[in-house]
């Protein structure tokens, strides 16, 4: 019914659609993430810093992979190595904790 080449083309097309149709694994801050201790602009800035300052050196870790108790120590340890300021690290941490202090 289908030639081998047609099946190959169909498979390639399905895969391209799958690649571009899904959202990123790393959450994009929305209104739901805004809490008393943060605003949307801060969370967006935190994501941008996390992607650019941390993702340029290593594979990004999803926020849910560590607990709220583990993240502060990890971010502090990386502060000196990645040359991020304390202000920037605070924004990154806020983003990783999804706005929860």
């Amino acid at each position: 019914m289908f030639s081998k080449l047609q099946i190959t083309k169909l498979t390639v097309l399905s895969i391209i659609v799958l690649f571009i149709s899904c959202a990123p694994a790393l959450y994009i801050p929305g209104k739901d993430n805004v809490t008393l201790g943060s605003d949307l602009a801060e969370l967006q800035a935190g994501r941008k810093l996390y992607v650019n300052k941390c993702g340029s050196c290593h594979t990004l870790i999803l926020p849910e992979k560590h607990t709220a108790a583990q993240w502060p120590g990890m971010v502090t340890r990386m502060e000196a190595r990645s040359k991020i300021t304390p202000g920037e690290s605070k924004l990154i941490l806020k983003y990783l904790l999804k706005g929860k202090e």
Binding site: F19, C22, L26, V51, G55, L60
Partner: peptide, 8 residues
């Protein structure tokens, strides 16, 4: 593009 931060 990063596979975690971006759609692809």
């Amino acid at each position: 593009l990063d596979p975690v931060a971006h759609p692809v």
